[in-house]
Design a protein around this nucleic acid. Structure first.
Lengths: 228, 228
DNA sequence: CCAAAAGTGTTTCACGTACACCCATGC
DNA sequence: GCATGGGTGTACGTGAAACACTTTTGG
């Protein structure tokens, strides 16, 4: 392993950002302002700088291209097909992120013409191999949500149990039984019931809840295992 | 995203290779022949070439450094701490691999002085951040073995159920009940009972079994979900 | 009083878990 | 015949899944 004089692949990060609103689960895309794939929708991302970690690069790109910050972000997979970028050899480390759409206003920026949210069942054709990356991210989210309570990253701080259930149904792609869902989730003791109720909507007002991160951490230390 | 003229991080792959013999679960290490960390044990790995995928790079390095080929190999995680290599900025994509120690004879080669297997509870101090990588690999293996039948990658083609059970005990780090283990595993219908028995050992001769990959694939298509 | 969503218990069944003895072989 | 590992069945309890009606509010 002598000094490295071979040509080096370039290295990028790409981010699959999931958000939730009343229309369902969505993914954030930007419209490319430059070739290749100019005008095509793509995942936000860009080149990794030599003095930053991959996590830092992913956060920086997200900030630059969409204005987002302080979000749940996790490494997904590294994609390395030789022809995935038509210009030159580019290897990309993909991240996926979950954000509270309620807290964030997304703006287009820098080298993106535009940024927008797309329902997962209405994603346009994407640049590069981004369709594949998105697919892997969906699978990962689906797998992860079953054994880690990450759904809260997508919901507002205070939420109705029916919102939480709908979120799980969206991610898992199937319906869940209301009574069993409530019973099970409440039994974990990681969400607080608030006195507050949601007003102004049709139907009986719902009690609001809040994720109790402190209780969750405490349970984890005791070897608690979240599942479904 | 204009042309990329910034300095590029270098890119390597590192492989955590697990093997099993009668002493237990082991990991393959090489002794470094060059600085930095000359003489220290490390994971096999090396720089990625511009015309190969990461998977190809990992397989190539393994072949070059240890003579191994045709093994189960899967991407683990990409490590990117800025100072993880003292020479310059190096980002490393880690892979983990499972091999049938019974089928393979490992030889040292090229820029490795030496290659050797170490029990997981007797791993020496490692170069770079390889201790961390190994730790992540162990966790991944532990998680994966519970919902995918990958243990067969470590066993000889024909094996005794007691061998399979010992393997699971090693990976999971706890004892399992013999009757429950056999009952459960056999109920999946993914291992064939052979007529053949193992001779020449003390005790009653054990019936040999073989993993039935065909049956497993068929079950998968029907939505079968392996667990524990 | 009607529409809309929230909230609430019980029964059933499958599966995980705990547990102890006999069997076949080599020496 | 004894030491060694192989092989087998049952009982119990927990937890998942199925299932329907009452309650509270706004219009």
């Amino acid at each position: 392993m002598a000094t490295y004089e071979y040509p080096r692949p370039a290295l990028t990060v790409d981010c699959v950002v999931f958000g939730l609103d009343d229309e369902g689960l969505k993914v954030l895309l930007i419209r490319r302002g430059l070739a290749p794939f100019k005008g095509r929708w793509a995942l936000p991302g860009g080149f990794v700088r030599v003095e930053e970690t991959l996590d830092e690069a992913a956060l920086r790109e997200l900030r630059e291209e969409t204005g987002l910050k302080k979000i749940f972000l996790e490494q997904l997979y590294t994609f390395s097909a030789v022809k995935r970028d038509p210009r030159e050899r580019v290897i990309s480390v993909a991240y996926y992120a979950l954000i509270k759409l309620s807290d964030h206003r997304v703006q287009a920026a820098t080298d993106a013409d535009d940024a927008a949210w797309f329902r997962l069942d209405a994603v346009p054709e994407l640049a590069f191999d981004h369709a594949e990356i998105l697919e892997v991210a969906r699978d990962r989210l689906k797998g992860k949500v079953r054994y880690q309570p990450i759904g809260f990253e997508l919901l507002p701080e205070k939420f109705k149990l029916s919102q939480l259930q709908e979120l799980y149904e969206q991610i898992l792609g199937r319906e869940l039984d209301k009574r069993n869902f409530r019973k099970k989730f409440l039994s974990f003791g990681i969400i607080q019931e608030l006195e507050e109720r949601e007003q102004g909507l049709p139907g009986r007002p719902a009690r609001l809840h809040r994720f109790d991160a402190k209780a969750y951490r405490k349970l984890l230390e005791q070897g608690f295992h979240f599942e479904l």
